[in-house]
Each structure stands twice: as structure tokens, then as C-alpha cells.
Design a protein around this nucleic acid. Structure first.
Lengths: 207, 207
DNA sequence: TGGCCACTAGCACGGTTGTACTAGTGGCGC
DNA sequence: GCGCCACTAGTACAACCGTGCTAGTGGCCA
């Protein structure tokens, strides 16, 4: 579906980290899953990647303070990535604080694997997942596909029902060029028609 | 884990209800999935069962008022059941009101099947799921457009990127007939392309 | 009974789409 | 410098799309 999709897992507990990594890898066979024992390492790789990762799964080695600084900063820097926090402490205050930072999911480490898997799948599908009570509104969407600027522009105009000719006029391009962007965008989304591209765009939260 | 597990689905929209029912059934092969076109019918069966259902999936045919009465009542009566609300209107106020009633999940009807499936799986695994605000807009007032059954079916298949020929095969029709449905549906929606039709369908909450 | 509507099926035609090629430019990292 | 990638522009072609016509069936309602 998306050739170079990257997922980053950071957790300082080796056993849990490896288990989590293989769980996610088996759930997303086509994705490149990288695991780290420190958040800073994951962040460093994320920044060095040609295209940003689609999913962060992070242990909460955040102090109370950095929940309010590092986490929102991560959210801002990787607007299009889904962020899931996995942690031991699942008290309401922590959940609220983390969700308020704009992450897409909060999972308790004590949860059984199938529960963690379901939660991650739901987040990757665009939902917001929290363990228990918490009406914590969360902004920003996670998306697992990356499009270039032009491709995104083209997709938005396609969603408006415009023809390639009209898109070319709108963007000040040749219709031939528009076609190439359309084809490339289709390949990125794994579709072959404009209609399917719109559906995909909506489900990915980019429309 | 679930020898006689029962799942109740209530939705007054036939096409969506059936799709939802088979989606859930395929996701939970061992469960007995019952579908209803009215909430009261589902409730009646739930009460008549020897053991309470494990999951309710309900369309939001609740008026604003009954969100604050029927829904919490259901929650109280079936404490151990998971309750998922599926609806057209996904404005923040409605989401807050429904979640405050103590349900386990809130899914927008405009969400693609895989997203709905993931959300239900997460809820069944014990999570709380709320929609990402990035997904389909559905301004209050319901859908302003009426499509015939065939037109809706055609639109749903178009959203999957199918060609007229493929749609004809799926529905057992002639490609010529499909074309007419497509054209009629376009007129109803006030669009001229498939891509725009999908966009319109999402914004109307019928996809 | 006649009118209306949804649904079915077909033909013809012009325009659009999507892909497969080539080919040049500018930016970025190694 | 070299490769890679996004972006630009073009040609050619097969397939598909959307609309305009005609025409028949069955249901519903006044």
C-alpha cells in the first residue's frame, strides 16, 4: 500500500519493547519498524528520514513536565504521524495530560497483546483510543501515507471534481504535468481511480 | 471465552445496517449477530435473552433528549456490555454528549469499513474509541440529498474505485444500466464526476 | 386508467482518464 | 561530482466516462 512506511517504537524496557516491536511488525508486514531504548534516539532517526514516520509508539518515559513540552513538540513536528503512548501508569490525570498533548492513542502496558494490537490498528485507521474514562478531546489526525505537496494539491482539486485540464489551470501547469502528478499520487495511495483516491484521502484524514 | 456470545446491531438504514452486520459477523465468527431497524426491538431481545449481549452497536436515532435518558439507562441496565454508537452527525457536542453517557465507542458512519472494524475491535478489547476530528464533516441537519437504493449502492462501489463494468458485475446489471444510475446519482448530488460524488457522499454522511 | 417513478437495456459520440514512454531542471545528501 | 527525487513538459494509445437519445417493465397513487 505504501512502500516506505516507517514505524518507530521507543521503550526502555527491553522485553516489552521487543514484544511490542514484533507485534507491530506482524500487524504491518510492509512497514519498516524500528525500535529504540530512548526517545531521543527515535526522534533523531525520525528527523533524519527522507519521509516522516507514520506512527510513533512511545513508552511514557516522560516526566510530568515533559508531557507538556516534549510530547506537544513531537505532535507539532510530525503533524501527519500517529502517536501512541504506552505506559504503566494509567491514572486519570496522566491520561488526560497525555491526550491533551494531542496524541492519537493511550495504551496501558498491562493490557493483553490483542488489546494493544486492536488499539494500534484503530489509531492507524484514524481513531482516537483511550483506556477508560477520559473525554479528552484530541486534535490532529494520524496518517499513514505521505504525498508530496503537488500530489496533495492535485488530490484536493480532484476531490472537488475538477478535470486534469481545470487542475492545470488552477495550478498554472501543463495538463500533461498534472497527469503525472495524478498517476504518481495514485501509486502512493495504492489506487487506480480518482474516486478511490478521494475515499483513501478521506480515510487517511488528509481531505 | 464466548460460547453463546450475542451482538446486537440496530440501525434504521437498511444498506448500512446489513453491511455493518456482516462486517461484525465476519469479525466475530463465533458470535450470534442480530440486526434490528429500531432500538426498541434490539432492547426487547436483549432483555429476553438468558445472558445479556456482549456488544451493542447502535445508530444514533436518539434525539438530543434521549441521549441523556435512554443511553445512560441502557448503560446502567447492561453494565457489562460494550456499547458503540454509530452515527451521521459527528459534531463535537454530540460526541461529548454520547461519550458522557458512558458508551465505549463512537464511530462516524462516514468512516471506511476498515476503520469501523478496527474501532469495534478496539472496543471489544476494552478500549474507549472516539473519532478523530480529521474525518468527514457532517453539518447538522442530516443529509439534504436523497438517493435511491441503487444509486447509493452504485456510489458506494464508485467510492471503492470500481469501474462501471465492475459495478455491473457486482450488482448483476448491464453496464448501460449502471451508467444511468451513475448519471442520475450525479444529478441528485449536483456533481459531474465520480470523485466529486465521493466527496459529496462523505460530506453528506452517506459514505 | 393514466401518470409518475425507479429500474432495466441498448446505441452513439465526444471528451476524459490513466499509463507507458522520453527528457530537461533544480535541490539535497553522500 | 553523482545519484536520487520532485517537478516540469510532451507524445501516443487504449480504455473508460458521461450524456444524449429510445424503449420496455413493474409498482404506487390518485
Amino acid at each position: 500500500m505504501d512502500e516506505a512506511e516507517t514505524i518507530l517504537v521507543a521503550d526502555d524496557h527491553p522485553v516489552f519493547r521487543d514484544g511490542l516491536g514484533s507485534l507491530i511488525q506482524s500487524q504491518n508486514p510492509t512497514a519498516a519498524v524500528h525500535t529504540f531504548d530512548a526517545f531521543s534516539d527515535a526522534l533523531a532517526l525520525a528527523r533524519s528520514l527522507p519521509s516522516p514516520p507514520s506512527l510513533f509508539v512511545l513508552d511514557l518515559f516522560f516526566s510530568r513536565k515533559s508531557i507538556k513540552s516534549e510530547l506537544p513538540a513531537l505532535r507539532r513536528e510530525f503533524r501527519r504521524a500517529a502517536i501512541v503512548v504506552v505506559t504503566m501508569s494509567d491514572d486519570t490525570a496522566t491520561i488526560d495530560a497525555v491526550m491533551a498533548a494531542g496524541v492519537n492513542g493511550f495504551i496501558c502496558k498491562s493490557a493483553p497483546p490483542h488489546q494493544i494490537a486492536a488499539a494500534i490498528a484503530a489509531v492507524r485507521a484514524g481513531e482516537i483510543v483511550t483506556p477508560s474514562p477520559a473525554a479528552g478531546r484530541a486534535p490532529a489526525g494520524g496518517m499513514s501515507t505521505t504525498l508530496s505537496e503537488r500530489q496533495l494539491e492535485v488530490l484536493q482539486l480532484i476531490a472537488q471534481g475538477k478535470t486534469n485540464k481545470e487542475i492545470a489551470q488552477d495550478l498554472g501547469l501543463s495538463p500533461f504535468t498534472v497527469r503525472l502528478h495524478v498517476s504518481a499520487m495514485f501509486r502512493s495511495l495504492g489506487v487506480t481511480t480518482r474516486a478511490a483516491a478521494v475515499t483513501k484521502g478521506v480515510s487517511e484524514g488528509i481531505l
